[in-house]
Design a protein around this nucleic acid. Structure first.
Length: 301
DNA sequence: TGTAGCAACACACTTACGTCA
DNA sequence: AATGACGTAAGTGTGTTGCTA
């Protein structure tokens, strides 16, 4: 299986998935206060992204026995180290399924077996003892393809999955872990770019809409100031409302309700200098545009 | 029951290396 | 051949979470 960079699942779309769709690339949950766009991300995206507390539990073993792609040619296999690390991580400490309270039972393992993976990420490079200190490994396309396949299934790995994947690819578990971290970062970056583009378009649309409304308002004001228009206006209307039946008598020609009910008079005549026009922004085409934009921002509302 | 210590993890940020035009 | 841009593997710092004493 050959993949190219543009095939690695980084093609994101502004299209909102249809109901029931599962976005293959859900936004990642960040524990740190990062810049995100909650209005843009669709709800089912977050539904498909488990929280950090349970992400290891449900999805972890769902695909565990999933048959990966067929054997991979490895460009480098640190066989002894890999074997040691495989033995170290099989206990799946994060799983509440395999071990109820064994989340951190890697502690029980000998030190030299525990931290072959971890030490490499915290200063004690496992390459430093060797001939290649931080020699950058370029993953083969087959390895990348397998990792991509796995990432599509679940964008995080529990230790057991990590071990299995590492063993399958002939990589160190740390390498698999790093690959998934970087992959999640790339996904998030891509999603952020898409979100920014979407918001940019929203801003442009709203700016244009605002411009149009300002223009419309100006025209209406101009129209209002013309005497011809003013003469055509109906006299101020006095509405009366019955406090008991809450009926409103609007027409001056009608027998007023207050005469019938001896009620208080509610004057809606504009007692301000600028008489407003019967203009409902939500019923105008512009309002429809705004509503469309609002519904785009809140797809479920 | 509350809490400190620890380990494991994820993420943001950065560095360093490989590839390509 | 040299070089800068770019992609990405890997290192580092920090916050969170769950377990244990």
């Amino acid at each position: 299986m050959m993949v190219h960079n543009e095939d690695l699942g980084l093609t994101l779309s502004l299209n909102f998935p249809a109901a029931g769709d599962t976005n293959p690339m859900p936004p990642l949950v960040s524990s740190s206060p990062s810049f995100n766009f909650p209005l843009i991300t669709t709800p089912n995206w977050s539904d498909s992204c488990p929280s950090s507390s349970d992400r290891h539990n449900v999805d972890a073993y769902k695909v565990e026995t999933r048959s990966f792609l067929k054997g991979i040619d490895v460009n480098r296999i640190p066989a002894p180290a890999a074997e040691a690390e495989e033995e170290a991580g099989v206990s799946s400490p994060n799983s509440t399924i395999s071990s109820i309270s064994g989340k951190r039972n890697e502690r029980d393992l000998p030190v030299n077996e525990i931290d072959g993976e971890r030490s490499s990420s915290r200063g004690i490079s496992d390459d430093e003892d060797g001939e290649n200190s931080r020699k950058k490994l370029r993953l083969s396309k087959d390895q990348s393809a397998v990792l991509e396949e796995s990432f599509k299934e679940h964008n995080t790995l529990n230790p057991k999955q990590k071990q299995a994947l590492a063993k399958r690819l002939g990589l160190r578990p740390r390498q698999v872990e790093v690959w998934f971290q970087n992959r999640r970062a790339r996904t998030k970056l891509k999603q952020t770019e898409v979100d920014c583009e979407f918001l940019k378009r929203c801003c442009e649309n709203l700016t244009e809409e605002n411009r149009r409304l300002q223009k419309e308002l100006q025209e209406l004001r101009t129209l209002k100031l013309s005497p011809q228009f003013y003469m055509q206006m109906a006299p101020p209307t006095t509405l009366t409302m019955c406090p008991s039946c809450e009926r409103v008598g609007a027409s001056p020609s009608e027998k007023s309700i207050d005469q019938q009910h001896n009620m208080a008079r509610v004057t809606t005549t504009n007692q301000i200098h600028h008489r407003t026009l019967p203009f409902n922004p939500w019923s105008t085409p512009s309002g429809q545009v705004v509503q469309r934009q609002m519904s785009a921002l809140h797809p479920r509302s």
